[in-house]
Simulated assay, not measured.
Amino acid sequence: MIDTQQCLSRYPIESIDLDKWQGTVDLMSQLYNAACGTIVQLRQDEFNAVVASANEDNFLERDSSWPWEMRSFCRKIMETGKGLYVNDAINDDDWKTVEPVCDGPVRSYLGLPLLWPDGTLFGTICVIDTKSTDYQPLQIELLEQLRDLINADLKMAFAYDKIKTLALTDELTGVCNRRGLQILGDQLVKDAKRFDLNFGFVYLDIDNMKKLNDTHGHNAGDDCIIALAEALKYACRENDIIARIGGDEFVVLLTCADDKVELVCDRIETEYNRIRGDNELLADNPISYGYVYRSGLHPISLDQMIEEADKLMYKKKHGRKVGEFEEPFIE
C-alpha cells in the first residue's frame, strides 16, 4: 500500500514517472517565462519540492523543504483547498511580510492543489517568479490542465498498487498468495545466498478441516483459516514472508539462526490456540507443521522446500497418533 507520508522525491513510487514530472515543470517555466516551475508535496508537516524546473535562474532546487509553521503560499492552498494567484507579492499587504517575499526573491505565485485519489491533499503545482506578473485566464486554465495530468498520475499509482496487491495477496486472509510467495521468496533465497544467511521454511495446515466444514459449514472453515493467518501475522516478523498456498495450507519463509525456527513455530501455535480458544467451533482443529532450514550457501528451490517441509508436517501429524516424529535437518 502506498505510504502517502513518504517523501516521493527520495522514495519514488514505481508507477510514477518523475522524469515526466520534471519535463512538466521545465515546460511550465518556459511557457510562463518564470523563474520556477515546481511540484510540491506536503508530508509530516513539511513541504518538499518533488521536482523543480532546471532553468539556471531557478532559486528552488529539487528536495528543497520548508516547515508547515512557516507562512507560505503552499500552506495557504493546503489550508483552503483552493488555488492561489498573487501577482505582485511585494506590494500585497497579505504577503509582503512573509519570509519568501520579504527575505527572498518571490514576487509572483500561481499555484493549484494536487490530490491523492482519496481526496486528501498531496501538495501543489506552482509557477513562481521573481517579478510581478499579469497572467491571463487562459494561462491559469493551462495550469489547471497540467494539474489534472498530475492528479491522473497519482490516481493511476493507487490503481496500479491495488492491482499489484490483489495479484500477490490472498483475498480471504491478506497474506501472500502462491504467486506472491514465488516472487518474494525467490528474492529472499537470492539474498540469503548473497549474504550467507540461514533461513527457515515452515509448512502448516489445520487438522480436521473437512469435518469442520461438513459439520458447521464453510463459514466456520473460513474462520479457522483466518485465525491461523492472524496467528502467523502476530508471531512472525514484518519482513518474514507469510503465504497461503492452498485451502488451509500456509507457509512461512524467514531468515533466522538455525535454532530459532522451532521457537517461531511454538509462538505461532500458542497464538493460534489462544485465538481458537475463543471459538468453541474450532476446538477440534489444532495445527500441524513441519519445517526445514538451510544455509545460504546451500539453497534449494522453493518447490523443494515446500515438498520437504510438507513431508515433515505429515510425519508430525502422523506422529501424534503413533508417537513418532523425525527431527528436521540442515545442510
Rank of each mutant, 00 (worst) to 15 (best):
V25H: 07
S15H: 08
K311I: 11
K311E: 12
V86N: 05
R10K: 15
K260D: 09
Q139V: 04
S295C: 10
L302Y: 03
G37E: 02
L204Q: 01
F73W: 01
Q145C: 13
N279A: 06
C224S: 14
N279K: 12
R194D: 10
K82R: 13
L27R: 07
P328G: 05
E280W: 04
E326S: 14
D57C: 07
N91S: 14
I90P: 12
P100E: 08
M313C: 15
V106W: 07
G174Y: 01
Y291F: 15
E280H: 14
C74G: 07
T215K: 10
A52S: 15
Y11C: 07
N208R: 00
L60C: 15
D153M: 11
Y272D: 04
N198V: 03
C236W: 06
N213K: 02
R62W: 08
D3H: 07
R107S: 02
Q136F: 09
K211Y: 08
D222I: 07
W95E: 05
V86S: 02
S288L: 06
M1S: 14
A243P: 07
D223G: 14
I39C: 03
L18S: 06
T97E: 15
H298Y: 14
K210M: 00
L188T: 05
T120N: 08
G277R: 12
D88S: 14
L115P: 06
K131S: 14
K311A: 14
H216C: 10
S72M: 04
S301H: 06
T124V: 04
K316L: 01
Q44A: 12
M305A: 08
A243S: 12
I90Y: 13
K190E: 04
V202M: 06
R107F: 00
D88M: 09
D161T: 08
D303E: 12
P12N: 04
T124K: 01
D207Y: 00
T38K: 04
D310P: 10
V50P: 06
M78W: 09
L254D: 02
D186T: 13
T120F: 00
L149Q: 15
R75T: 00
L232H: 02
I225M: 06
L204H: 02
C256Q: 05
K96L: 07
K190R: 12
I275H: 10
K190S: 09
L146P: 08
D214R: 08
I183M: 13
A231Y: 01
K210G: 00
K317M: 03
N48D: 10
G296I: 00
D94R: 15
V292S: 11
Y85P: 07
L253Q: 04
M305I: 02
L181D: 04
A309M: 10
K260N: 09
C176L: 12
L138T: 13
D94T: 11
K317N: 03
K193H: 12
L197T: 03
L8E: 02
V51R: 04
I268Q: 01
Y160F: 15
R178Y: 06
K211T: 13
G277C: 09
N87R: 15
P286Y: 05
G23V: 03
D19L: 11
T120K: 10
L172G: 13
Y272T: 03
D45V: 05
D92A: 11
M28N: 00
G180R: 09
R267Y: 04
D303Y: 01
P299V: 05
P67G: 00
D118E: 07
C256T: 09
L138N: 14
L197E: 08
T4W: 08
S65P: 05
K317C: 05
P328M: 05
E14G: 01
G111V: 05
D57I: 10
N208F: 01
D258S: 10
S64E: 11
